[in-house]
């Protein structure tokens, strides 16, 4: 197995495109090292992206935040301003593995590993995160919900690599939240995950919402029907009931070792209510500031 640590995005894409099909991107390594240990994969080339400075940055820009694909969970957690600005995204990031795992794991890896249960993904989707992808044919920007296509599968083409995420400056009076359900309090894989971002108008009416569900389908889902139950309401009990019903209705889960179909469907609704309540309170406190 070859190991390369290029210092530019171009060099990395060149290695991935020109290399053999068994080439893998090594970011935090917390998924692929496990897959290698379990003999699930046997890559011939590892392309370590941690020496690419563009991928190591967390940048506060005029129009939002951009963070690189090699930024670890702990680096985001230690970035006080980012955490303040994107509490919903951080709800998800803080649930990836353990503290030890987050010391290495990256959000980009969480997205590209394409587990339907990845905790940061619904949070990013709800926040409207855009990923910048580089490849042999240059760069393109796509919303995070368009990356995962199924368990372990992404829409990235051969030679393409995720470079960074962009989170546009949050609207005033908006708030986001993510919660998952797991039997253990930590160190577990979501049976259901829900990310919600919502924005309130001056009258307290929800003007904009995004609802994303994890672990209830082959990939994380952006559920517009669920968002629609909130928009135009004050996120009252009736709206939350409708949200729960819409969230449950959007689920198309499987039975597996981690949870049953019916359980996932029911809990998706329960969690959606709870997450909307947190997002609402965060939006309200944003409005007060």
């Amino acid at each position: 197995m070859r190991y390369e640590a290029p210092t530019s995005v171009e060099a990395a894409t060149e290695l991935l495109a020109g290399g053999k099909p068994e080439a893998r991107v090594l970011a935090g390594g917390t998924d692929i090292l496990v897959q290698m240990h379990m003999d699930a994969i046997a890559p011939e080339l590892l392309v370590d992206i941690k020496n690419i400075s563009e991928m190591r940055q967390i940048e506060s820009l005029d129009d939002g935040y951009r963070f690189g694909a090699a930024v670890t969970g702990v680096e985001l957690m230690d970035h006080a301003n980012f955490c303040r600005t994107w509490p919903g995204v951080m709800d998800g990031v803080k649930l990836i593995g353990s503290l030890q795992v987050r010391g290495r794991a990256t959000v980009a890896g969480n997205v590209c590993n394409a587990s339907p249960a990845a905790d940061s993904v619904p949070a990013l989707i709800a926040a409207g995160a855009i990923a910048t992808i580089a490849g042999p044919n240059g760069r393109r920007d796509i919303p995070v919900e368009d990356i995962g296509t199924g368990p372990g599968k992404t829409s990235l083409e051969n030679g393409e690599i995720l470079v960074s995420f962009f989170l546009a400056k949050a609207r005033p009076s908006s708030g986001g939240a993510y919660q998952r359900f797991t039997p253990r309090t930590e160190m577990d894989i979501a049976i259901v995950g829900v990310g919600i971002d919502l924005t309130l108008g001056d009258d307290g009416v929800c003007t904009h919402a995004r609802v994303a569900l994890g672990a209830v389908a082959e990939k994380a889902l952006l559920v517009e029907e669920a968002a629609a139950t909130l928009i135009g309401t004050k996120v009252d009990e009736q709206a939350l009931d409708n949200l729960a019903a819409a969230a449950s209705a959007a689920c198309r889960p499987i039975d597996d070792k981690r949870g049953t179909k019916e359980y996932r469907i029911e809990v998706a609704g329960v969690l959606a209510r709870r997450v909307a309540a947190i997002a609402l309170s965060r939006a309200k406190s944003a409005r007060e500031k």
Partner: peptide
């Protein structure tokens, strides 16, 4: 200075 699992680092 960062806590990691040494089994998840090459």
């Amino acid at each position: 200075g960062v806590l990691v699992c040494s089994c998840l680092v090459l």
